[in-house]
Computed example of a mutant assay.
Amino acid sequence: MDRLFAACGGLAAFFLAAICVLVLAQVVGRLMGVAIPSADEFAGYCLSASSFLALGYALRKNHHIRVTLLLDRLPRARRRVAEALCVVGGLAVSLFITVNTAEMVYYSVTFGDLTQGLVPIPLWIPQSGMMIGVTVLTLAFLADALRMLRGLDPVYLSGGPGRDTDVSQEV
């Protein structure tokens, strides 16, 4: 699964680079008097794909912004319970978003929806980045929930998937 998370992180980086290329092409195009059709829309699709594809990777690498004001003040046993509640809550929310996003993509394919720009493309194509990203995030939360059931810390706290120790019990 780590390869899946890394691949999604790499795709997120690719789409960020694509945004840079599109913006640079627009700037150069304007200087030369050439308009690039739907470049703003494609940059928006790349932004969406990049943002969602990076979610699972960022969770595994502990790069999400976490407010630990309360967690840091709890005793170790309660901190572990609170962390488990956070993982289960994240799993529930990401699963809800995954199911609804998959339904949205399904209906876009079924009805043949197209984007509204100058260059119409099937809507499911830009929506797929979101669907894949939230699905991978759900898998990351599920993997962490399963780790916690085995008595281990989630990967984002333990320092990586290869380290099977319970960090909360270290001194």
Score class of each variant (00 low, 15 high):
D113P: 00
D166Q: 13
N62E: 07
D113I: 02
F111C: 01
A49M: 01
R79W: 11
Y156M: 03
A58F: 11
F14R: 14
L91Y: 05
V21D: 04
M1D: 04
P161N: 12
D72P: 08
A18N: 09
S38W: 13
D72T: 09
D72I: 06
H63S: 12
F96R: 10
V21E: 05
A77I: 08
L55Q: 03
T138W: 05
Y106A: 09
Y107H: 08
D113G: 01
C46F: 04
V21G: 06
A17P: 00
G33V: 08
L146V: 08
E103R: 13
C86V: 06
S108T: 10
L24M: 12
L71E: 14
V119K: 11
R76K: 15
P75D: 12
T101C: 11
A17C: 11
E170H: 13
R150T: 05
L137I: 11
F5G: 00
L142W: 09
L91V: 06
L95D: 01
L53I: 02
L137S: 11
G151Y: 12
M1C: 09
L70F: 12
T115E: 10
S128I: 11
A12Q: 04
G44Y: 01
L137T: 09
L137N: 10
L24F: 12
L22G: 06
G29A: 10
G29V: 06
A92F: 05
G129Y: 01
G44I: 03
L22I: 10
D153P: 00
G56V: 06
V81I: 05
I121H: 07
D166G: 02
L11A: 15
G56T: 08
A12G: 15
L16W: 13
E170Q: 10
D144L: 02
I97M: 06
D2I: 11
L137K: 02
G29R: 12
F15W: 08
I97V: 15
V105F: 02
V23R: 15
Q127C: 03
L16V: 14
G33L: 03
T68W: 05
S158Y: 04
S48I: 04
A54F: 13
T115Y: 07
V155G: 00
K61D: 04
F14M: 13
I121N: 05
L139H: 00
R66G: 00
R163W: 08
D164K: 15
V21L: 10
F5D: 00
R79F: 05
A6I: 11
A82C: 07
C20F: 07
E103F: 15
A39Y: 04
A17N: 10
D113R: 13
L69H: 07
A145W: 08
R80G: 00
G159E: 10
Q26A: 03
C46I: 01
A17Q: 03
V99F: 02
P154H: 02
V99L: 07
V27G: 03
V67W: 06
Y45W: 12
